[in-house]
Simulated scan of single mutants.
Amino acid sequence: MIRTLQAGQRCEVRIASVTGSGELLYSTDGILLEAPNWTLDNKSLILNGDGKLWRLDASTAELAGIPLTGIPDLNNDHVLAPDGETVFLSAVDGHIYRAPLAGGQAERVTPDDGWFHFLHGVSPDGKELAYVGIEGGDFTRPGRLMTIASDGGARAGVDVRQLDVGEGHCDGPEYSPDGTWLYLNTESFSTDPGHAQLARIRVDGTGFEQLLGSNTVDWFPHLSPNGAYASYIRFPSGTQGHPADLPVAVVLVSTSDWKTPLRTWPVFGGQGTLNVNSWSPDSDRFAFVAYPPATQTED
């Protein structure tokens, strides 16, 4: 289902700095944009909205569509390849696609294996994708941590691999900059419904560990390219899933100390705010999206 803004609601694309500052880059009441990726040339953000892909110029704040063919409507799971010229995308049909970042024909990566596939990570060498698999497209079942060769095609069926991160639902897996770890959130550390916590596991399936124990519901850990920082989104205690339109906080931490936030940005948002890695290539800034209602404007 394609998300739209409510009456009077705005979409605000914001930039946060590791120094703690923040700025509003783009605001609109015409389209609900989600999940920014920062391009490798440090010039643009890539977002989805209205089922399409968009490029937002980080200097001029001009928004332009990226024309894609051969792909259904998009959801908010898209990640840029290390070559800077390719984007991997999840679509509403439950499949992952590869397409030129400049626009053009998309090619499907994932096989018809009876699962839904939600992309979150591309390995540093570009050869592997990490995604969440939902068996049978049945969302009453927990998501599973899966990897697949990024070339897909005939090899895809044998290259699919599942990593064991417990019985709880997991989401948001993405590779560390050195390709050694997959960072994710999982409900496997608690019996409380929906109580997601931050974790990581080595790409070989060993070393599964919790990064932070908290009373809040924590989703989508994203490491900076230099590995020094991470951002994630904090939902209120008791939240199930990662819903839209509620008070949340975007959190910045040092990867040497996940327990002590360097800065938090309270926003009205949730779904779409920080689903994918949005760090700038120089590791100085990251982007997120807020959706203030008619009676509120984010500071």
Score class of each variant (00 low, 15 high):
residue 157 G to F: 13
residue 186 T to Q: 04
residue 281 P to T: 12
residue 94 G to K: 00
residue 112 D to S: 07
residue 239 T to M: 07
residue 90 S to D: 03
residue 114 G to P: 03
residue 206 T to C: 11
residue 200 R to P: 02
residue 240 Q to D: 07
residue 25 L to I: 05
residue 72 P to W: 05
residue 189 F to H: 08
residue 13 V to Q: 05
residue 88 F to D: 06
residue 293 P to M: 04
residue 29 D to W: 10
residue 188 S to P: 11
residue 83 D to N: 14
residue 157 G to V: 13
residue 99 A to Y: 08
residue 160 V to D: 05
residue 165 V to H: 01
residue 62 E to S: 11
residue 174 E to L: 13
residue 196 A to W: 00
residue 172 G to M: 11
residue 153 G to R: 12
residue 153 G to K: 11
residue 153 G to C: 05
residue 158 V to W: 14
residue 171 D to R: 12
residue 165 V to R: 00
residue 178 D to W: 04
residue 174 E to M: 15
residue 210 Q to F: 11
residue 58 A to L: 06
residue 245 D to A: 10
residue 104 G to K: 13
residue 202 R to T: 11
residue 16 A to C: 11
residue 45 L to G: 03
residue 246 L to N: 06
residue 248 V to F: 01
residue 270 G to N: 06
residue 64 A to P: 06
residue 236 P to M: 06
residue 207 G to E: 13
residue 76 N to E: 11
residue 120 H to W: 12
residue 256 S to T: 09
residue 106 A to P: 06
residue 97 Y to H: 07
residue 295 T to M: 11
residue 9 Q to P: 03
residue 108 R to C: 08
residue 153 G to A: 09
residue 182 L to P: 00
residue 90 S to A: 11
residue 84 G to N: 03
residue 154 A to S: 10
residue 209 E to L: 10
residue 83 D to E: 09
residue 21 S to G: 15
residue 227 G to T: 00
residue 224 S to D: 07
residue 249 A to G: 08
residue 208 F to E: 02
residue 141 R to A: 07
residue 99 A to S: 06
residue 210 Q to P: 14
residue 213 G to E: 15
residue 87 V to R: 03
residue 11 C to D: 03
residue 47 L to F: 07
residue 18 V to R: 05
residue 234 R to L: 05
residue 74 L to W: 02
residue 274 L to M: 01
residue 137 G to Q: 06
residue 54 W to C: 01
residue 262 L to H: 00
residue 69 T to G: 04
residue 147 T to I: 04
residue 198 L to M: 07
residue 286 F to R: 05
residue 178 D to K: 07
residue 296 Q to Y: 15
residue 200 R to V: 02
residue 98 R to V: 13
residue 4 T to P: 05
residue 297 T to D: 14
residue 258 W to Y: 00
residue 6 Q to H: 11
residue 9 Q to I: 14
residue 243 P to Q: 10
residue 294 A to V: 08
residue 170 C to N: 08
residue 1 M to A: 14
residue 218 D to V: 01
residue 18 V to P: 01
residue 240 Q to G: 01
residue 165 V to G: 00
residue 23 E to G: 14
residue 204 D to G: 12
residue 77 D to Q: 14
residue 147 T to Y: 03
residue 292 P to M: 07
residue 220 F to L: 09
residue 65 G to N: 15
residue 129 L to D: 02
residue 59 S to A: 15
residue 42 N to W: 07
residue 222 H to V: 12
residue 226 N to Q: 10
residue 48 N to P: 12
residue 87 V to P: 03
residue 64 A to G: 10
